[in-house]
Amino acid sequence: MILTSKKPQEEVLASLQDSGTIFVIGCASCAARSKTGDQKAVDDMKELLLSKGKQVAGTLVLPAACNLQTVEKYLAKNEDFAKADAVLILACGTGVQTVGDIFPQKTIAAGLNSICISTSGSQNKRFCSVCGHCVLSFTQGLCQKTRCPKGLVNGPCGGFVGGKCEVDDKQDCVWVLIYEKLKKHGKADEFIKSFISPL
């Protein structure tokens, strides 16, 4: 799933400053699992907008905001949606762009920040940042590009203490985890002798 976080309220309100009537969209897939785009998040957002004197034409939680057919099917015939000038979308960046692509006449506002790809079972575990050059076979399935704050691909910096990361001591240094796993699989020597080339 795509991990998202809520944008600060001021930022959301600023992006809707000049908008007349607003329609709020949530997403029942990833954003609902992050609790950033579920029914409650949408209701809370509606409350906030109303309390700031905004007009809300309606709300809807889509089954999946990133699915072209779904978005079209649910929104094309929605009368409240038709009335709105602006759409505030509580979904990942793909969800926002899907809605924006199909309805180019609407002003678009994004309510969430997309962080990375995570697993559904564990909140907040960053797994993949979709880099386009997957290196997981070098690391026995732990993504250093995402889980090391410096994204070092060939091994750690000198900052790990007690297995924790120098940037955030509540977080494991992913390289310590990788090294343990490589050792377990008899690959520690290979780790020392080979590296991902700069070429």
Partner: peptide
């Protein structure tokens, strides 16, 4: 290159020492 004798686990820092020499 740099190396941190206080990094812990030290074994991994030593692995990096050797890796940097090879590079």
């Amino acid at each position: 290159a740099a190396i941190n004798p206080s990094a812990d686990p030290q074994e991994l820092q030593i692995a990096m020492f050797r890796k940097k020499v090879l590079a």
